[in-house]
Nucleic acid binder design. Structure first.
Length: 573
DNA sequence: CCGGGGTCGT
DNA sequence: ACGACCC
């Protein structure tokens, strides 16, 4: 029987997927609104990273060569976007703005411009407030603590677009709405409210998808963009009453090209295409992908495919276990993955640059120092508390003058200590005998423990960066490229990873913070108190030791030691 | 001719 | 350490 092959649907959640419209371009437009009505693009090296809709109207598109863009649209305005600082800052600002609406921190970023928010608890709560006899005059409560905080809305209608397209008033002939549709209405009105606030208060437009899981929310948003929202409406599965219909989830998924499904990337899509058409499929990166398009419906309905066949086809050495079942679920619009909890710090911080030619030690040293300094700066931005924790703690007692001088820097504490440093390069391969060069994007990397001196806030970023390059990065480079010369790098990346969150700092690390998670953001911050002395103050209080102590942060569990690791010779200089 | 980031799993 | 996936 056909139905046994279908993965089970669990559609109890309501999830919003936000996508900031042409984000890099929007960051420039926010500073200079006159760009909005002009064709405008952001360049990284030789490519157009993104462009605004005025430029797209004239035929420009993402990842196009700058040369082609200028030929098609000679009056295009271009800004450089290789330094991501301003984009990262804007991304964080918008993320925090949206986070303030969340009741439980179920908030997940994808790239700089996409955010999922699981709003199930807010929808559940507001469903209880509805007057079923007067849905038109509803009030959406945004705070459990303050029921007056919220907005008026008409719960009898959906906000924004729907899939499938609404044919008229929703509900049955008597105008009655089922509970599931009503939940989607609430999600759509919350999405509209947040989108409007984002635009009014931050000046950014967004595109939102509303559905019962991450996959569907992200995909359905694509139906109407930019500056719009789309809800995938129930019934998602076919019912007994309506057994000849697919349900809206399959109806929606079936038309997609398989490579467009999040989670099915280049490799998986190629394997699926070649199994379906039974011959090799050429892929042309310049001309929009696969020569042969294969729809979700074709894979899903193929007589020889079920999830076990998919596991055999897609699995193998190196591939994740259960990949066949996962893909089978995705093809049906089933995605039970959770929207992950908001994390106070990233898993990794990396800085990279690419080069036409990087083949001498002199040039390499310059580049490594630049990258290292950017990395140290990034660490101080992304891994230090924003609050002046130390001073705040002392505010009830006296803060003497000498402490006050250092409070800006010393008052901040590390939210996490990366334990690992990684150097990655992309070597340009040597010429082959016929004079051509094999083009490869392959990278090689080497990791080592991150020295503790990088956490010393008294030293300048330049000093820390130089020391890091001299004492650590250069050794890693020799390990990656033992040849004295002959190498030529097309890319260098420097990263810190393996974050050890500082004790008591994680918002999910202990019971106190779990309870705080259910309060609004401002209240969480207001209630926050530091109960321990910041570790970096330990070394600050005394003389610098000359001994070579625990020179590097330890691998494994636990917080790195901070006693007196620093010092070698030239450090005090 | 080839962006600068991220996440996770093996 | 690398390779898949995402923007």
């Amino acid at each position: 029987m056909e139905t046994r092959r279908l993965p089970a649907r669990k559609d109890g959640r309501i999830i919003l997927h936000f996508d900031h419209d042409c984000f890099y371009a929007a960051v420039f437009e926010a500073r200079n609104p006159s760009l909005k009505s002009l064709p405008f693009a952001v360049q990284q090296k030789h490519i157009i990273a993104t462009c605004n809709y005025e430029a797209r109207r004239r035929g420009l598109h993402k990842l196009m060569l700058v040369r082609d863009a200028k030929r098609i649209c000679p009056d295009v305005i271009i800004e450089l976007g290789e330094d991501l600082t301003r984009f990262r800052d804007a991304s964080k600002d918008l993320y925090n703005f949206i986070k303030a609406y969340s009741w439980d921190g179920k908030l997940e970023r994808l790239g700089f411009d996409e955010i999922w928010m699981d709003v199930t608890s807010m929808v559940d709560y507001n469903m209880e407030f509805l007057n079923r006899n007067d849905l038109q005059h509803s009030f959406f409560v945004l705070s459990k603590e303050d029921p007056t905080l919220g907005f008026a809305y008409d719960a009898s209608v959906l906000a924004g677009h729907s899939y499938p397209k609404a044919l008229g008033p929703s509900g049955d002939g008597d105008g009655r709405l089922d509970e599931l549709s009503l939940r989607h209405h609430l999600g759509s009105h919350l999405a509209l409210h947040i989108r409007h606030q984002l635009e009014e208060q931050k000046g950014y437009t967004s595109t939102v998808g509303i559905a019962t899981n991450k996959l569907l929310a992200k995909l359905v948003g694509n139906l109407n963009k930019p500056k719009a929202q789309t809800t995938l409406m129930p019934p998602l599965a076919s019912s007994d009453l309506d057994s000849d219909s697919l349900g809206n989830a399959l109806l929606f998924m079936d038309d997609h090209e398989i490579g467009k499904i999040p989670g099915i990337g280049f490799k998986l899509a190629q394997k699926l295409r070649e199994f379906i058409v039974q011959h090799p499929v050429e892929y042309d990166f310049a001309n929009g992908g696969a020569q042969e398009q294969v729809s979700v419906a074709r894979v899903r309905q193929h007589p020889d495919i079920d999830f076990e066949k998919l596991e055999a086809l897609l699995g193998g050495p190196g591939s994740p276990h259960g990949i066949g079942y996962k893909v089978w679920c995705l093809l049906h619009g089933v995605d039970d993955s959770e929207v992950s909890q908001d994390r106070p710090v990233p898993r990794q911080i990396s800085i990279e640059d690419s080069y036409l030619r990087l083949d001498t030690m002199t040039k390499l040293l310059t580049e490594l120092n630049t990258l290292a300094q950017s990395l140290i700066k990034r660490m101080r931005i992304d891994l230090l508390s924003t609050e002046d924790d130390f001073v705040e703690e002392k505010s009830t007692s006296e803060v003497d003058a000498s402490e006050a001088v250092d409070r800006v820097v010393v008052g901040k504490r590390w939210l996490a200590h990366p334990r690992t440093l990684r150097l990655t390069t992309r070597p340009r391969l040597p010429l082959r005998v016929d004079g051509t060069r094999e083009r490869t994007m392959k990278r090689i990397s080497h990791s080592c423990p991150l020295p503790n001196f990088v956490f010393d806030l008294r030293a300048s970023t330049e000093a820390v960066a130089e020391k890091l390059v001299r004492q650590t990065v250069l050794h890693m480079f020799r390990r990656l490229h033992p040849e004295k010369s002959g190498w030529d790098l097309s890319l260098v990346n420097l990263a810190v990873t393996n974050m050890a969150e500082a004790a008591g700092e994680s918002k999910t690390a202990n019971g106190r913070d779990i309870s705080n998670m259910f309060k609004r953001q401002d209240e969480v911050l207001k209630d926050f108190r530091v109960t321990e002395s910041p570790p970096e103050l330990v070394s600050f209080s005394g003389e610098l030791s000359e001994e070579e102590g625990s020179h590097v942060a330890a691998f494994g569990e636990g917080v790195p030691m901070f006693n007196d690791d620093n010092e070698d010779d030239d450090w005090n200089e």
